[in-house]
Amino acid sequence: MKTVDPRAALALIEQGALLVDIRDADEHARERIPGACCIPLEHVGSAPQLQQAPGRTIVFHCRSGMRTRANAAALEAASPGCPAYVVAGGLDAWKQAGLPVVRNARAPLELMRQVQIAAGSLALLGAVLAATMSPWFLLLSGFVGAGLMVAGLTGFCGMARLLVHMPWNRALRG
Rank of each mutant, 00 (worst) to 15 (best):
A36P: 01
T132I: 10
Q116F: 08
V20M: 06
I33D: 01
D92L: 15
L18P: 10
L91Q: 10
P167G: 12
S79C: 14
W94H: 02
A29W: 08
M159G: 07
R170T: 14
S46H: 11
A151M: 01
P6M: 03
A127L: 15
R30S: 12
G89M: 02
I13A: 06
A123N: 01
V20Q: 01
L153A: 06
A9W: 09
R56P: 10
A97H: 08
Q52P: 02
L50M: 13
W136A: 13
G65F: 07
P54I: 15
L172I: 04
E31C: 02
R161V: 15
A171E: 15
S121K: 10
A29E: 08
D26F: 02
G142I: 00
R7Q: 15
V115Y: 03
D24W: 08
D5C: 02
A130T: 07
A9D: 14
A93T: 13
H28T: 08
L129R: 08
P167H: 14
M149I: 00
R69C: 09
H61S: 10
G126C: 06
G126N: 01
R56S: 09
A151P: 04
V101D: 04
E110M: 14
M159H: 03
P167I: 09
M1E: 09
T3P: 03
Q51V: 01
V128K: 11
F60L: 13
V20P: 00
K95F: 06
V59E: 02
G147N: 07
P48N: 10
L41D: 05
D92V: 13
D21G: 03
A107P: 04
C157N: 01
P167D: 12
P83E: 06
A74V: 09
E31R: 13
L140M: 14
D92F: 11
L153W: 01
K2F: 06
Q49P: 13
L50K: 05
R113V: 04
V144G: 00
G35Q: 07
F137S: 03
G81K: 12
S134N: 15
F143I: 04
V115E: 04
V4A: 04
A88S: 15
R63F: 11
N104E: 12
G152H: 00
M159E: 04
G81N: 14
I33H: 01
A107R: 08
I58D: 01
V150H: 03
G16P: 05
Q52S: 15
P80M: 15
E27F: 02
E42L: 09
M149Y: 00
C157L: 06
S141M: 07
Q15M: 10
A47K: 14
G120V: 13
G55A: 05
P54A: 05
L125K: 03
P83L: 02
L10H: 05
G174S: 12
F60A: 07
V144R: 00
A160V: 01
Q51W: 05
T154D: 00
M166P: 00
F137P: 03
L172V: 06
A74L: 13
R106L: 12
M133D: 09
R30A: 08
I13G: 05
E110Q: 11
